[in-house]
Design a protein around this nucleic acid. Structure first.
Lengths: 189, 189
DNA sequence: ACGATCCTTGACCGATCGGTCAAAATGCCT
DNA sequence: AGGCATTTTGACCGATCGGTCAAGGATCGT
């Protein structure tokens, strides 16, 4: 029963991410993780370090899986299509129902003083990535003539980043409305 | 040193609200509240009940102070003015710096299963109040001819409620941009 | 085959958690 | 003045917290 790793690390990380995502850092106990992963206490500590390190690894997975797909949706220079793709992603995950309703990043920001310093700065940076991706997309759109030359790309990016933050945990039906309005209002800009 | 209340309940509630607001329900210990209020453990329990009850009282204060002012901003039938007032409130509290950056309601929703059932439903209801206030305001605006007759008030309300949720914790400068865009885009609807 | 190395297991640690309680102290009512 | 009700106080409770560790078993290199 020992000598070599008895578990798939990525599966374990996925289980940990779900727990942290759903219950938050403070609300998650090591025993919660033991139950969710099927591993024993000591194995968890041996593999990852301490609770903060476990959270960091789970957070990175969260960013890679959830966040990265959002950034990818904002490719291209057509703002209407890009925003539609972004909202479609949100809608899909809202309909799935499988995932928790909160946002791990917002929880991470609240408790970042209890994390290693590099993770804290990394978290802050990640929180701004969506705005940057939106900004870059809007600038491409303006250069391509799909957006008025006078459009304030920075302000638009900040605005739609706020919308994206605000829809986390929203039910599918209201989310459809929000997506429709979000795209429709863009036409005016 | 006893026999009659030695403290001002509203002051104590205000202190408790700040702690819960900043650290969240799970992240707040009774000792935190003891330190913040200056009261002793037993006095807190004698006055309020248990931790969940303390949180409920603090949450109600939060709703009355913070939430109610937002609802009040949405009076009248001029959507541009109403939204401007709403954003101005957010901007003011962002500049104050005195208040924590998170949203107590979102924390409350996460841990509502640990609260008395009535508080849980009350919390869910409160979370929808802003949307309802926006909806009513947009309907008044449409009736007054300040909004296109074809405007989807429900969808607009849901959209701006998402924006309002999304700006919590945002710095003043980006918030100004968001407010400007939010009002400007409305003109198009 | 054998020692070095690594992983697993479950008991265990001190600290802190939310919550309780009896005793002391005070104010109120008659 | 005197009994009653209420608040304050600080010690105390069992449960749970995050974290550690020695013992035992399995694998690998030689």
């Amino acid at each position: 029963m020992a000598g070599t790793r008895q578990f798939d690390e990525s599966q374990v990380l996925d289980a940990m991410m779900r727990v942290f995502w759903e219950k938050g850092f403070e609300g998650t106990s090591i025993d919660d993780l033991v139950r969710a992963t099927g591993l024993q206490r000591g194995s968890l500590y041996n593999a990852f370090g301490d609770k903060a390190a476990m959270f960091c690894r789970a957070l990175r997975l969260y960013q890679d899986e959830v966040h990265a797909s959002h950034l990818h949706a904002l490719r291209g220079d057509d703002p209407r299509e890009a925003l539609t793709r972004l909202f479609q992603l949100k809608l899909k995950s809202a309909r799935d129902g499988g995932q928790p309703q909160g946002c791990m990043l917002s929880d991470a920001r609240r408790i970042c003083h209890r994390l290693p310093t590099n993770a804290a700065t990394e978290t802050k940076a990640a929180a701004g990535e969506l705005e940057e991706a939106l900004f870059a997309m809007f600038e491409r759109a303006r250069a391509a003539g799909r957006l008025a030359a006078t459009a304030d790309c920075r302000a638009l990016a900040r605005f739609y980043a706020a919308v994206a933050r605000g829809v986390t945990g929203t039910d599918p039906e209201p989310l459809e409305d929000i997506a429709r309005i979000g795209v429709a209002l863009l036409e005016a800009a």
